[in-house]
Write a protein that binds this DNA or RNA. Sequence first.
DNA 1: GCGATTGTTGATAATGCCGCAACAATGGTT
DNA 2: AACCATTGTTGCGGCATTATCAACAATCGC
Lengths: 312, 312
Amino acid sequence: MDRFRTMESFVRVVRAGSFTIAAGQLGLSRALVSRHVSELERRLGVRLLNRSTRSVSLTEEGAAYLEFCEKVFLDIENSERAILRTRLEPAGTLKLLAPKSFGAMHLSDAVIAFAKAQPRLKVSLMLENTPYRGSYDFAERDLDLVLGFSTVRGSSVQEQEVATVEWVVCAAPDYLTRAGRPQTPAELGGHACLVHVDVAPNDSIWRFEGPQGLVTVKVRGAFFSNAAITLRKAAVAGLGVTMVPRYVVADELASGELVAVLPRYRAGSRPLLAVYPQAPVTPPKVQTFIDFLKDWMAAQDFARPPRMTAAG
Amino acid sequence: MDRFRTMESFVRVVRAGSFTIAAGQLGLSRALVSRHVSELERRLGVRLLNRSTRSVSLTEEGAAYLEFCEKVFLDIENSERAILRTRLEPAGTLKLLAPKSFGAMHLSDAVIAFAKAQPRLKVSLMLENTPYRGSYDFAERDLDLVLGFSTVRGSSVQEQEVATVEWVVCAAPDYLTRAGRPQTPAELGGHACLVHVDVAPNDSIWRFEGPQGLVTVKVRGAFFSNAAITLRKAAVAGLGVTMVPRYVVADELASGELVAVLPRYRAGSRPLLAVYPQAPVTPPKVQTFIDFLKDWMAAQDFARPPRMTAAG
DNA sequence: GCGATTGTTGATAATGCCGCAACAATGGTT
DNA sequence: AACCATTGTTGCGGCATTATCAACAATCGC
């Protein structure tokens, strides 16, 4: 028998001073209220109420138990209210995981701004090179949200596109002076290209969206890496033309160490994904951060708003 | 759904780190444990656990709720243990009600001795002339035990005979000198008798247990009262022969103000009753006092052990 | 990759709860 | 003193929720 309900009935009987009135207030039959109190007394092995046909009063043990019941109800009230509040507004700690390079270069600024905007929310930003392995990260590493560019196998997680991160084709002025400045994607075929690959070296297709629509070119790789920073160094050293996320070379483009080419063509882009555990309701701290990050990314020059996503 | 059980399941899952193990420990099916946690999450509107097929971990809200659950369980543990203890040993306050004359004269000594023997038990002894009206006394006046000589109508109370209180026939020496000293009950017919009545004056039958067995005599009342103390005063004043509880005239018999007559006959006696609310188990503080009082009464010269009673 | 294990979800069977109504008790009233 | 109204309790039937089994989706180790 549900002990919370029996306790509720007991408290109500004491307050009302009558089984009948208590039953009316609880919307139950007298019979059930009587059974509830009896059950409680049976469990405790002690008579809680002295009953007569005219009045009901507490025994000494009943008074002690009443106090206990009210304490429990108060605790429940407080605790559940506290938890319910987290359902409506961000609370607690937001634990993030992101790729090291992207996180270090720009995401950290966004996170810091977010932490400033939400002073009551604690934020943890972990940066790793291989941020996301599987959905068990959330359970084992106690994470709320993983940011990254790779989509996931499993489906017990939800993902939202936060922004479309622009890529840019660029090279060192020195190199361009030597090898010439390509004017169309097709001309890249004759250049030394520094290729970003996910896993292993292979020939790569570079995609462009230009005035005449989508253009693809098969580039000849001169240097391969899965680390954009390495490609940047190689480009700065004059090894060739590279296509990397714009955020990776933002500083170099500003300082002139690198120069963007093919400005009329939009280079390939990849969606920045926010991945979080599947749940009936997304915790507000997570959704709030995603919304914040979307806005923040929209203000950056290396990103565009995400394409239409499934999740609103 | 029983919230205690869902909380129990939740706590067990967290401790075990697995639904399967928790279900095994609880003796339930995995399915049910899963439903319990789901129900809890539905009620709170928050995800409490991050689950993957390999591990289960708490969310931030889950950690808070776990703490709450453990607090509640600890409270229950303590509170129920405290109450269970009162089921085994006397505790709290024993609230007594007794007839004024009997209580003032002798019962108070017994109660004081009891309070001394049970230093952890508080005792309240209320003395009234009409001690017991009905079972509702227990509810309305918050009593544990009523002592008295009158049996009760209702049956929602239990009663035990504590002792058989001896009555004694006595008179003032002065009176006996004047009117003669009766040698047999029959001779009382010619005496002025001071008759104890319950309600209204009426002729009275006095019963004796003598060498030849039960003897009854219809006495001629010269003075009636329902208060034994009044009869005592009348007897001391020499108005006649009275039959009252021996405890009422114990001092006068000792001092010689009154003299017992018919010493070879045992005068009528009345059982001293202990009345207390009907309950599956008699509270130990009540039973302990009754037992104590039985022993104490057995040592008094005005009482005999009770006749065999229904209640052991 | 396959396979074993884990958590979740449908459908069925059963336990237990709930309300109605009769009952016992009791206190007020005439 | 006897009736009556009201209260708390209890037996029984209907029914809802619960618990289990089985199948499923998912995921990590080998």
